[in-house]
Amino acid sequence: MVRLSLRANPLVILRESNAVFREDCLVKTSEDQEPPKVGVEILGRTFQVPAGITAVDALWLTGHALERGVGCLGGVCGACTMLYTTPGSPNFNVGLGCRTVIAEGMSFFPFPQRGRSRCRYELSDVKDPAGELLDHFDRADKCRHCHGCTNVCPQKIQVEEAIELTGKGEFAKAGEMFLPCVMCGACMAECPEEMEPNHILLYARRGFAARLAPPPHELERMAREIREGRFAAEMEALIALSDESLAARCEEGRG
């Protein structure tokens, strides 16, 4: 019985995938074939890896575990959040591992996944999102303006400013600023007041959507008309058509 390796090397498949359509491709220069190597430090050990790859690729290439700390590989899930330093700077940076290209001298390690919010609310029970903010997030007014949350955000959200807007009841603007948040939890970990900024802003966006935004009248109208059966006869007639007649109907008016 063949046991498949659970350890994946993404670079192998990327190379293999080229092979399929390689005959279609034209130029290659010798200097491009062998990317230069760079030295990086992962969890305190030094490795030489090809330049131009991401931190996640580097973790894989150097045999690090992969089931945890990898998610969408598309920069939107926050699973691969990592801490890193670069030469010449004393500060930690927070980045998404699948979207951070490594550089010579970079030192990084995966960000420990934080627990969930302490706070609980049922959105359907929330009537006045702004008025109830402190009921659901009892530390939402404790910001001491240290800029920590904004500094660590890998999505470059102005977290502190958005939190301030939330406090003023400006949920529309706060929710808009929050949109790119991947819930990596770095701001939660950073906040000295344990405010849980990401969860506060998610509350602001959801609260605005469900209670304060213009009601989606178009959806309500269409859902009602469907319930009342306005389209039922037409739909049933369409479904009953032969393949050919259906195709003719659907191609009508198209180029």
């Binding site: 959105l123 359907s124 929710g175 966006r205 959801r206 609260g207 605005f208 959507a209 469900a210 935004a213 213009p214 989606p216 009248h217 178009e218 959806l219 309500e220 269409m222 859902a223 469907i226 319930r227 389209f231 739909m235």
Partner: peptide, 26 residues
């Protein structure tokens, strides 16, 4: 297609914020 609009209303109730035109329409 027939459940679609109802399902989108449900998403709005869960706190999904679809983009609006300046006049508030979807």
């Amino acid at each position: 297609v027939e459940d679609g609009p109802e399902a989108m209303l449900w998403l709005c109730e869960q706190g999904v914020l679809f983009d609006r035109e300046p006049d508030g329409r979807l």
